[in-house]
């Protein structure tokens, strides 16, 4: 089968990088003050996928993370919780137990994360394991090598197969934009993932630089918008890696609002994959509440 057929069917629009960077920069000139800032900061917290994805992860580390997820900063009343925690498949069961009754989802990376270099069989087994342990969300990686070979059908089919294996779990498809090489390819991969049934598209594993950036995210948001305008169906977006400051996170939200609209300003449709963002947001919330600039030592790191 001619592998470029899918590309032709999708007709992904071309992307002008300089124009995207200019547009992305424009969002950062929005000034987010007082009420809007507080509302935005709480929204950011509620959209975080608190993440630990390290080779040295242990049960202890995951337990701490789950506790932190439920108790972001107990001295402030009425804070939202994060949206989910994100762990490797072997910690899903533990995380589920720790988070029981909290309303916080457990997301698991799967499909031979982070490289995606394995057989479909093993990837599906990886997914099934996480799902059977109770994962609410699966974060898969696409096969970038196959993508670069132009085997778009393969990439499409693999995503569709993983989606089928997810059952009730929502599928986030990681494009690993830092390995795709151009914004044109980011757009093409986004379109393939959306067409193959991804519930979310996600920028990065966090293992490759650059990870999430505003221009890359903007291109993916535009893919989501075009799909919505064509089909009326919403797809979620998750930038991951590299977003550690609340000001930047707020600018992402502005970008989501102006590109997709307020409907996407919801943890159901937008997430931040981040580990250190939550504390910076908490510091900002405290600053808004008290008027005093905060120091990191007053906020628990885990």
């Amino acid at each position: 089968m001619n592998q470029s057929q899918i590309a032709r069917v999708f007709k992904s629009p071309v992307i002008d990088q300089v124009g995207v960077v200019e547009r992305a920069k424009r969002f950062t000139t929005r000034s987010i003050k007082s009420e809007a800032k507080m509302q935005g900061l709480e929204m950011v917290l509620s959209m975080i996928d608190l993440t630990t994805l390290e080779g040295m992860d242990t049960e202890g580390k995951v337990k701490q993370l789950c506790y932190k997820a439920q108790h972001l900063h107990d001295s402030i009343d009425g804070l939202p919780t994060v949206a989910a925690i994100c762990v490797y498949p072997n910690f899903v069961g533990l995380a589920k137990r720790c988070l029981a009754g909290s309303g916080i989802n457990v997301a698991s990376v799967a499909t031979a994360f982070p490289s995606g270099n394995s057989s479909l069989e093993i990837k599906l087994a990886d997914v099934s394991m996480a799902v059977s342990e109770g994962a609410d969300e699966i974060d898969m990686v696409i096969s970038r090598g196959r993508f670069h070979r132009g085997e778009y059908n393969f990439v499409f089919d693999e995503i569709a197969a993983v989606k089928a294996a997810c059952g009730e779990a929502r599928l986030k498809t990681i494009l690993e934009t830092g390995e795709l090489g151009s914004l044109d390819k980011v757009r093409l991969a986004s379109d393939i993932a959306i067409a193959a049934g991804a519930d979310f598209i996600k920028t990065s594993t966090g293992k490759i630089q650059p990870a999430a950036t505003m221009p890359v995210t903007l291109v993916m948001l535009e893919a989501i918008r075009d799909h919505f305008q064509k089909t009326g169906l919403m797809v979620g977006m998750k930038p991951a890696g590299g977003i550690s400051k609340s000001k930047l996170a707020l600018h992402y939200l502005i970008m989501v609002k102006e590109t997709l609209g307020d409907a996407w300003l919801d943890p159901k449709w937008f997430r931040f994959g981040a580990s250190s963002l939550a504390n910076d947001v908490l510091m900002q919330i405290e600053k808004q509440r008290t008027g005093a600039y905060q120091a990191a030592n007053y906020f628990a790191i885990d």
Partner: peptide, 13 residues
């Protein structure tokens, strides 16, 4: 005309 910004050390986006 815009000049895309990608160098041998990668893209700046």
């Amino acid at each position: 005309h815009p000049i895309e910004q990608i160098t041998e050390s990668g893209a700046s986006y």
